[in-house]
Design a binder for these strands. Structure first.
Lengths: 189, 189
DNA sequence: TAAATATTGTAGCGCCTGCTACAAGTCTAA
DNA sequence: TTAGACTTGTAGCAGGCGCTACAATATTTA
């Protein structure tokens, strides 16, 4: 009688897509039930309450993302300018946009003190820092700071609005050129 | 009979404080009425509807912020590393934290397509870019890109959570040292 | 003073929210 | 086959939402 668990997993899959599409605002139980092809009554049978449902879907999305990041970038160490370039290209792509918007949504809600969302968001962001730090071809002492800078810069672009893409582009190119200056300075002087 | 306008202005002042304290989530009409010392009925007498109320409060907050930024930084041109240092110190201060959290809230909601919030947020962010660009002591061609990078970096720190301040600190220091490298390189080589 | 206008209270609409009580159906194990 | 657990539908609760109809009061104007 593991039907309950099977259905639960299926619901999580379907709702992950919906969350990525529409964020954390359109999350009434009746609406989610419709999206998942079931009833609100059943959602509360599969999950203890709405909070547990949301947490399950978000962690599912997070683990999926970190898997696909590893797939995409591999393990070869990269200089910061290259990593940033690749990361920015990914961030601009349609494939990743939903993840970034959801991440912004999550951050905004977590910033208002919801402890559950805080812990989920912390977990996700720590994962990203670790992943980037390992990938960076810089002195060990600077790995974490550089990773933090890259993440903060890309995150900062999330606070862009339609018609402001040029602004983000300029910021990223500026940082890329700073990184190149820096590595030249190290090798030349 | 300008009592209506007077009350309207008073309500805006009171609600600005409340928005800065609690963000854009706790905005039921009955709750706002309580905070403003009036009734929901009267809020809809002073304002056409809730949307107009929120817009009025947000633009009031925005203009207050830009005034205090000008007060604080003056007009003297600053190198990017200094501006970033000062900006970061301000961003960490308790006085500015409410503004930054509200800004994140606004960005997250605007990103979901609300046209009213989008235009308010665009207006605010354009104001910041202009203000920073004018203040930066860098070649004219690089003003906008550098301002965008600074804003993006500070904005990126908004996506931090309790216990992660160290990460933000590291990112900012990293960028400051990149800027210093860059200006040394320009003057030495 | 009387008429017109501005301000405010009371009460409630229809719709949404997360959640639950209860009963009926379905399946599995003895 | 029957008892028990598992799964699901129906209906509804209490409370919130933005908003409004209507009437009463207060204030200004003629």
């Amino acid at each position: 009688m593991a039907k309950r668990q099977d259905k639960r997993a299926e619901v999580i899959d379907l709702l992950a897509v919906h969350f990525l599409d529409t964020g954390l605002s359109d999350t009434g139980l009746r609406r989610l039930a419709e999206v998942a092809g079931t009833s609100d009554r059943m959602l509360l049978y599969y999950f203890e309450n709405k909070e547990e449902l949301v947490a399950a879907v978000l962690t599912h999305i997070a683990s999926g993302l970190s898997a696909s990041l590893t797939d995409m970038f591999g393990n070869r160490p990269l200089p910061p300018s290259t990593l940033l370039e690749t990361l920015w290209a990914a961030a601009k792509s349609e494939a990743f946009k939903p993840h970034l918007r959801l991440w912004l949504d999550l951050a905004a809600n977590a910033n208002r003190g919801d402890p559950l969302l805080i812990s989920i968001a912390q977990q996700i962001s720590a994962g990203w820092i670790d992943w980037m730090a390992n990938l960076l071809d810089v002195p060990a002492a600077e790995k974490n700071a550089t990773a933090a800078l890259l993440l903060a810069t890309v995150d900062g672009q999330l606070v862009l609005f339609p018609g402001e893409i040029a602004r983000g582009e300029a910021a990223i190119q500026q940082l890329i050129s700073l990184f190149k200056h820096w590595s030249q300075a190290v090798s030349v002087c």
